[in-house]
Design a protein around this nucleic acid. Structure first.
Length: 230
RNA sequence: UGACGUGUAUCAA
């Protein structure tokens, strides 16, 4: 089972879910029965290629063969729905998972926060983040980065910068993604010079800018007409 | 021995 499942995961990670499905058929013929992990990988793969509805169908099918979803299965579906902007349905899945005995974990929360940010519902995202603490899921660097990016994308760069300070106080070190988010946000509100300063600060923080950080900055310069500096 | 969460640009619609 594990050998087959590993291969299926390989296909899914390459966006070749279809071949993964073919392989499941083969493993069954071989007398190996797909388990929860196998199904979860396929559901996740289907979600990634933009076919969440097929993922939901596969969820129904796995139950028929007495294979039951776990938290990863649910998280994969919630992420798929969120990435399509289907927040309402993702919350329905959350309700189901709770009924099913799987309370949301840190990843569930982070997925939802990301989903809310993607549809610009940043205040709700911040609210969820506050709620996370109450169920003693601490925010980690990924959650912080998502919120910082969300704030930047709605031009609330000042709040994003404050949150970046807060994450440091909280013991999460800003990484290359945090900085890139801020640089991009600053550029988009026309504060290219502050973005420049952040690039310098990155080196001091032992976090060298990469191609993405530079692209954000160069783009900002170009949009300002500062092509030469770019 | 196997599964889930974060960043830039361009083009497209």
């Amino acid at each position: 089972v594990i050998t087959y499942t590993t291969l299926i995961d390989g296909f899914c990670k390459k966006g070749r879910v279809w071949e993964g499905l073919v392989l499941v058929a083969k493993m069954i013929r071989d007398g190996c029965h797909p388990d929860t992990v196998t199904y979860t990988i396929l559901i996740d793969g289907l979600c990634r290629v933009g076919t969440v509805d097929l993922g939901l169908r596969l969820l129904a099918q796995m139950r028929l063969v007495a294979c039951f979803p776990n938290i990863v299965t649910y998280n994969s579906l919630i992420d798929g729905l969120c990435k399509e902007g289907r927040i309402h349905e993702s919350l329905e899945v959350v309700a189901k998972m709770i009924q099913d005995g799987w309370p949301p974990n840190k990843i569930t929360y982070t997925i939802l926060i990301d989903g809310l940010c993607r549809v610009s519902m940043v205040d709700l995202a911040l609210g969820l983040a506050a709620q996370m603490r109450h169920v003693d899921c601490s925010l980690d660097i990924i959650t912080y980065n998502i919120l910082i990016d969300g704030l930047c994308k709605v031009d609330r760069v000042e709040e994003a910068l404050e949150l970046a300070d807060e994450m440091t106080r909280d013991g999460c070190f800003q990484d290359i993604i945090t900085y890139s988010n801020l640089i991009d946000g600053l550029c988009k509100v026309g504060r290219v010079d502050s973005a420049f300063r952040l690039i310098a600060e990155m080196r001091h923080a032992d976090c060298s800018p990469d191609i993405i950080s530079y692209t954000a900055l160069i783009n900002g310069l170009c949009k300002e007409g500062r092509v030469h500096e770019a």
